[in-house]
């Protein structure tokens, strides 16, 4: 790693707000889905909130500040391999934004949550109280398939969230790099490469 780390304002307030709102929305929504009351009204609202947040993130990824843009942080296999080689070095990455590996896991998580919201909207679990608001717009087979997807999706999201938190802790304790504080304050130590 060459260059001296500098403290920069990395994450804009909207992106940070998005992150923590989505985290809360997904965690509470997921928990309610698994263990909540039979009438899933709050689960539904958290689904709508998550969907709206994902839409915002897509827009922000196109027109937001540079660090938030997809074009800024999505990279090809070569960059990913190069980054992965240094992954286990016990030193901070000082990466300016989403690193090449993390970027794709961000995309995976966003896509999974988007699919979860979409499948939830058209699911019908045949209990007459928790019918997706758009379920009547699709065929019975699609409603059924959506329910299945929603179920599988909940497991995949759990895996991705545990992985996400696990990696953040790995950075904190193995690489001695705090990624949580920057997501709260916006400020991060980075080495500019570009």
């Amino acid at each position: 790693m060459n260059g001296t780390p500098v403290r920069v304002k990395l994450w804009d307030p909207f992106l940070r707000g998005f992150h923590w709102l989505l985290a809360a929305s997904v965690i509470i929504g997921w928990t309610l889905g698994q263990f909540g009351p039979s009438k899933m009204t709050l689960h539904f609202w958290l689904g709508y909130l998550s969907g709206a947040l994902i839409l915002f993130r897509v827009v922000w990824g196109l027109v937001g500040p540079p660090e938030a843009r997809f074009i800024h942080f999505l990279s090809g296999p070569r960059a990913i391999i190069r980054y992965a080689r240094g992954m286990f070095r016990r030193e901070p990455s000082y990466w300016h934004g989403h690193n090449p590996m993390g970027a794709w896991s961000v995309i995976a998580l966003l896509v999974l949550i988007a699919l979860q919201v979409a499948s939830g909207l058209v699911s019908d679990p045949d209990d007459y109280i928790n019918i997706g608001p758009l379920a009547s717009e699709v065929s019975a087979a699609t409603r059924k398939l959506a329910l299945r997807w929603h179920h599988i999706g909940s497991t995949l999201i759990l895996i991705m969230v545990v992985l996400h938190v696990g990696i953040v802790l790995f950075y904190r304790y193995w690489k001695h790099e705090d990624l949580i504080r920057p997501m709260i304050t916006g400020w991060k130590e980075v080495i500019r490469r570009d």
Partner: peptide, 8 residues
Amino acid sequence: EKLGGACK
């Protein structure tokens, strides 16, 4: 709601 809860 009561019946649907039992279905679920």
